[in-house]
Design a protein around this nucleic acid. Structure first.
Lengths: 188, 188
DNA sequence: ATTCTGATGACACATCATGTCATTACTGAC
DNA sequence: GTCAGTAATGACATGATGTGTCATCAGAAT
């Protein structure tokens, strides 16, 4: 038998999410989270840089998948062609929990300034990952940065549309539609 | 004679900037900033929500000017036309200090995770301001959001290019060039 | 004169975040 | 088998952050 209960990080994540739902983000303290997870406060800070981080444990998944897709794309394709072809794969692989979870999480984030700010790191990390991927294919740095920003915009706007209603269209359809509208807007 | 020295907020801003340059952001404490400004720690937190905020005192200027430009634009213009016409005015009104100041400030920000995250609020606030402005003109909400993101992208990328070298082209030229390249990238 | 207002100081306090050392189970070499 | 090494955790101390509350005092309003 292991000395400690397994999955300390996961227990902390779940305890934090539960407490944020029950009491709100600002009203829950790190010692409370640690206690519910059966761990010490110090251990919480070994797994997360701060209280907000417990809500962003999966933030690396999208940038990592994006980097893989770009690295594996045929050399003949330009950045925006790769992106257009990748939407379905990302939509299928990410956001695999129940939609109500993402909506609840979104509500927590919107309730707190610090969390809203923290969330801005997600599109920023996606831009970074995309830009690096495009640059490694030889794309001009400015063009790579622009393509990265345009792609992150499509994701941000699509996810916003997806979360705006429990009955919205599937994310993959929203990504394609937002991409088309982005192109039309850019050339208007 | 006034009871207190004037411009407490400005003195705090300058003291903070000096100390960040001298010692680095992480190594300077709020009591140090307050002492150099001749004020109490409590007064610092009356003017700024946190230590990082002292570096972002001017962050409202660009979104406010953007809102004004949109509100005053002829009703016949679409969002991207307003934006294309507004670059020169923004470049002329903002960033009026010595360029070395913005480069030094940029270096401080890049040196600290918390500051990098804090900086992400600037394009986010610009997106918000632009989106609201476009929506008030009757633009479809999704199109307004997309036009806002595209515009913020042009600003972010242009400012990045401008700060990347002390001898870069003037910001206004970079804005126009980045805008054109963004349009080409979007339709590639 | 009196009252009101607004900025500041002083103090207390909870929380956050980190440094440091001890503890304990698991691992692997011998 | 034993023993040293490693990794995760606990325990404790501490500096920094950020806020609530009340007092103080100059100038404005009346």
């Amino acid at each position: 038998m292991a000395r400690w209960q397994p999955d300390a990080r996961g227990r902390l994540e779940r305890a934090a999410f539960e407490l944020f739902v029950e009491q709100g983000f600002a009203a829950t303290t790190v010692p409370q989270i640690a206690e519910r997870a059966g761990l010490s406060t110090r251990t919480f800070f070994r797994h997360f840089a701060d209280k907000r981080d417990a809500l962003f444990a999966e933030e690396h998944a999208v940038p990592e998948q994006a980097a893989r897709i770009i690295a594996e794309a045929p050399a003949s394709l330009g950045p925006m062609q790769i992106v257009a072809d990748g939407f379905d794969a990302v939509a299928a692989a990410q956001f695999s929990r129940e939609k109500s979870y993402y909506i609840a999480r979104h509500q927590i984030i919107q309730s707190d300034d610090g969390l809203r700010e923290r969330q801005l790191r997600m599109p920023a990390a996606l831009v970074d990952s995309l830009r690096r991927g495009f640059e490694e294919r030889g794309t001009d740095p400015v063009d790579a940065m622009l393509a990265a920003h345009l792609t992150a915009t499509v994701f941000s706007v699509s996810i916003g549309r997806w979360l705006s209603s429990p009955n919205s269209e599937p994310l993959a359809a929203l990504l394609r539609d937002t991409f088309d509208r982005m192109r039309r807007t850019a050339s208007s």
